[in-house]
């Protein structure tokens, strides 16, 4: 037994030595867990980036991007993180306010985004649109605007996520705010009979929808691409809302405290490169920020692309986030 313990400690000790022996610098990226999962973008990104950088790329996963930010804040000056990846543009201002991130000085003119980009600290690496997904085999009549949604028959049900704990949930709240402005509260009151349940995260909501619990679920316009490409199913579609769709742009930034700033900048540049753009669509199920020679995977061309990406500017969100949330809470309460 003692011997076993001793060998155990040896092995533990050796594993701590291994990375140190390679002498290459290690770049640490904090990201949310579906990015770092074995089927997510991280393993392919690691492989592709390590080929060109002469470094080790290490992903540290947290339950959400905001969780990663809180982790960095708690770790303070001792944080291992060089890069924070995965925040949504709508909540990037929370991170900006901490003053922990530096300017990236990267040319963003070549980005292929529906909006122009001028954020000096955060760099986008993929984007998508929020949308309601439905099963066309089951649901025949689908609303094509928010107005039509609240005119549906009473047994038409949707599942949404809580804006306090989920990015799509926050997206819908801002989406409705953008369209209805001061009448948003009124709209939520009218919408609430159609809401089957409000879940904590995207997973629960989408899982319930796949079980056939509701007619529509709040997700992304790119969600059907997964069903087309990975499952060969074409019955999942998104409802096209003529008011336009709220956008989600995922961003990353370099920490001021990073010891490898040059390498970190290289990584950020890599996230807007063609190699990265080829990985994103079928691993993160969203649009890359660069046009590539190969184009998008086939399934993506049958997706509905919104005519207009709606966004509220970051400053306004930052200023009024609490107020919007309270308004939402008060109008949704039964």
């Amino acid at each position: 037994m003692n011997k076993l313990l001793k060998y155990g400690f040896y092995i533990l000790f050796l594993t701590t030595l291994l990375p140190a022996q390679t002498n290459k610098p290690t770049l640490v990226v904090y990201a949310y867990d579906s990015f770092t999962a074995s089927w997510g973008p991280a393993p392919k990104v690691k492989k592709a980036f390590e080929k060109v950088c002469g470094c080790n790329l290490e992903f540290v996963s947290t339950s959400s991007a905001i969780g990663a930010l809180r982790k960095i804040q708690l770790e303070g000056a001792n944080t291992k993180a060089d890069i924070l990846l995965g925040l949504d543009k709508s909540s990037a201002n929370i991170a900006k306010k901490t003053g922990l991130f530096m300017q990236h000085h990267i040319d963003t003119s070549k980005l292929d985004l529906p909006i122009s980009w001028n954020d000096k600290e955060f760099l986008p690496y993929d984007y998508g649109y929020f949308a309601f997904v439905y099963d066309s085999d089951k649901t025949k009549k689908v609303p094509n605007s928010f107005e039509e949604l609240i005119a549906m028959p009473k047994d038409f049900k949707i599942i949404i996520q809580d804006p306090r704990s989920s990015t799509p949930g926050l997206g819908l709240m801002l989406w409705i705010k953008k369209i209805y402005e001061e009448k948003a509260s009124e709209y939520w009151k009218k919408l609430s009979p159609y809401i089957l349940t409000i879940t904590k995260g995207w997973s629960e909501a989408y899982g319930l929808f796949l079980k056939g619990e509701a007619d529509m679920v709040l997700s992304y316009t790119t969600s059907p691409a997964y069903h087309i490409i990975a499952e060969n199913k074409t019955n999942y579609k998104t409802a096209d809302f003529k008011e336009g769709h709220y956008g989600q742009i995922e961003v990353s930034a370099i920490l001021k405290s990073s010891q490898h700033k040059k390498l970190a900048k290289e990584f950020l540049e890599f996230t807007i490169s063609e190699a990265f753009a080829n990985i994103i669509p079928t691993t993160n199920w969203s649009y890359p920020v660069m046009k590539t020679k190969n184009g998008l995977p086939k399934g993506f061309y049958s997706l509905h692309v919104p005519s207009k990406m709606l966004l509220i500017d970051d400053e306004t969100i930052q200023k009024h986030r609490k107020e919007y949330l309270n308004e939402w809470l008060n109008s949704i309460k039964k």
């Binding site: 409000i198 879940t199 629960e204 319930l208 309460k333």
Partner: peptide
């Protein structure tokens, strides 16, 4: 926690 959030259906 999880039950209340998934089945509760509303912030109330």
């Amino acid at each position: 926690f999880a039950i209340v959030l998934t089945l509760g259906g509303s912030p109330s």
